[in-house]
């Protein structure tokens, strides 16, 4: 199989992880960044994708590829089901509902027999790292292409931004805000589920805590904030910076756990002083030493 030149499998694995997180961060960015609705349960779609792949492969003997669209469809259905009641409301309700949804999915996966419950599930081992690198690279490219075409180059993207900036004005201008928001949420669930399926097959062992725990969603949110909310490249920049720095610190200072502190401090600094994330720096916008206003602007964007 094809592998990047001069790359050891360790670095290939790290590249694979970075690409996966870049895709996951973009999936959150569709609803959280472009639409301005905080989804705190986005990890659930990742988990649904992971468990769909695991269950179909282990219990039904399916090959790997067809499990991915099934996971994506299931996630879209779940997103629509939560979105229809909650996206009629504004403000924090959606954030609370998605958080509750994420927790509920985790509890269900812990209780059901078919998910292996608290024991988790093992998938048939397929330890071909280049395969996963290629597959995740393609999935990430498609995710960004989708975001580029639908959010940067189409009416749909303008509608979403209108909703984010001023929902009432958007509605007055003739945007069916509820339907548009539900579409955005359903769309955002697709990449998350695909990467979930890929992750499950890559790691070969999944557990409610590892694929449905709050850490998955938290990382997506932090990566987008770090890179630049509601921009096409922000999630890529944020995910690359955070995952790469995390791994490099872990690699270079592996015997101490101080790297977690460095990472935490860096994230706080960006959120407080760089409201546009790292992308803001790239576009030479601003480093603003007014943390109070920066936080307020962020909260306003999320309608909190």
């Amino acid at each position: 199989m094809a592998v990047p030149l001069f790359v050891s499998s360790f670095w290939l694995r790290i590249a694979t992880e970075v690409l996966m997180w870049a895709g996951l961060a973009q999936s959150w960015n569709i609803i959280g960044g472009y639409t301005g609705y905080l989804s705190f349960g986005h990890g659930a779609f990742f988990g649904i994708g992971a468990y769909t792949t695991a269950i179909l492969m282990v219990h039904a003997g399916w090959p790997f590829w067809p499990t991915l669209p099934v996971g994506a469809v299931l996630s879209v259905l779940c997103a629509a089901t939560i979105g229809i009641p909650t996206l009629r409301l504004r403000g924090a309700y959606f954030a609370i509902a998605t958080w509750a949804f994420g927790e509920a999915v985790r509890q269900v996966a812990t209780v059901l027999e078919i998910t292996g419950g608290a024991f988790g599930m093992q998938l048939p081992p397929f330890l071909n790292l280049p395969f996963f690198y290629e597959a995740i690279l393609i999935a990430t490219i498609l995710t960004y292409l989708l975001a580029y075409l639908l959010l940067e180059r189409s009416m749909f993207g303008y509608k979403l931004r209108a909703i984010r900036e001023n929902e009432i004005a958007a509605e007055t201008a003739g945007v069916d805000t509820v339907v548009t928001k539900i579409e955005a949420f359903a769309l955002s669930a697709i990449p998350a589920a695909i990467f979930g399926g890929l992750y499950a097959y890559l790691i070969t062992y999944i557990h409610p805590d590892s694929v449905l725990g709050p850490a998955i969603t938290d990382l997506m949110v932090v990566m987008v904030l770090f890179g630049g909310v509601g921009t096409l490249w922000g999630p890529l920049v944020g995910a690359t910076a955070i995952q790469l720095v995390n791994r490099l610190l872990w690699f270079l200072r592996g015997e101490s756990t101080l790297y977690l502190v460095y990472a935490g401090v860096a994230i706080c600094l960006v959120v407080l002083f760089m409201p546009d994330g790292l992308m803001g720096l790239v576009e030479r916008r601003r480093v603003l030493f007014r943390p109070r206003e920066n936080l307020k602007a962020l909260l306003r964007q999320f309608k909190l």
């Binding site: 094809a2 592998v3 990047p4 030149l5 001069f6 790359v7 050891s8 499998s9 290939l12 690198y133 290629e134 690279l137 490219i141 960004y144 580029y148 940067e152 096409l232 490249w233």
Partner: peptide, 26 residues
């Protein structure tokens, strides 16, 4: 934005090309 878009495809193209070569074993 447009330039960024072009930039991305260039980067991705390079990455995809790179991925077609074979790595040496350890």
């Amino acid at each position: 934005r447009l330039n960024w878009g072009r930039g991305l495809f260039l980067i991705l193209l390079v990455v995809s090309l790179l991925s077609l070569t074979v790595s040496p074993t350890t």
